[in-house]
Amino acid sequence: MTWFKKDEEQKEKREEPKPSDHLWVKCNSCNEIIYRKVIERNLQVCPKCNYHFQIPAQRRIDCVADPGTFIEYDVNLISTDPLEFKDSKRYPSRVKESQEKTGHKDAVICGEARIEGQPAMIGIFEFNFMGGSLGSVVGEKITRLIERAIEKKSGVIIFCASGGARMQEGILSLMQMAKTSAALAKLHEARIPYISVLTDPTTGGVSASIAMLGDVIIAEPKAMIGFAGPRVIKETIRAELPEGFQRAEYLLDHGMVDLIVERKDLRHTLASLLEMLKLES
């Protein structure tokens, strides 16, 4: 029974690495522990279950934009502390920490690029920046992006990854939902296509504004998408949640997203949709 023994040995070996180890990553979906480099080489996608990991904004640009075409806008918009928010840590120091961690000034990166030759205005949420939360800077940058798109008559793509509102900016954060939706209303009237790409996770205030207003809504496989958090729902209804609840596939089943696209196919899908949707001039 040597092979049996060997199998057990292997199992032990597999369980050895800890997810906190920088070399190894635990998959959020299948719990498999995978060598980080393998995932990185695979566009941050789990090779076992096809779960699409969060991806830094810069890598997202590399994944979809034609090389060297991305021009970033509004790099120097910085948040203030309008509420002088009381917390264990001050809001400005939380912002500073995130800036150091990500190398970005706030939670969204906006700019223009070409995708298989198609010009597009692109916004990318950086989840590692305070959970991709929607503060005044994010709202302003997205609004400016959309206004530029109207000016240049070029389609808009926003990659969402956000826990929702930025609590530290209170009501002003909530109002960013109205502000960005207002800009999207103008875009809609100008008949310029807007594609939203919902990545893991897209929840709360971002889901109930930017994310769900796409003319076409694309989701990445297994992405968590919803308005209320699963824990809150569970506590409210005091019952187990259905299997796969609030995952991209579940939303597709319920008619809430247009399609699920794997990361490796995203560039082509976006380019062809942009081309087919735009008004003939």
């Binding site: 999207l184 809609h188 109930a208 769900m212 209320a228 729902i233 609030q246």
Partner: peptide, 25 residues
């Protein structure tokens, strides 16, 4: 907004988002 299974399945986020966009215009 009510946090429930049915509310999510029927598109709570979409319903809110659409109202925001439509009210502006």
């Amino acid at each position: 907004a009510f946090p429930g299974v049915g509310a999510e399945e029927r598109g709570q986020a979409e319903a809110i988002a659409r109202n925001l966009r439509m009210m502006v215009v």
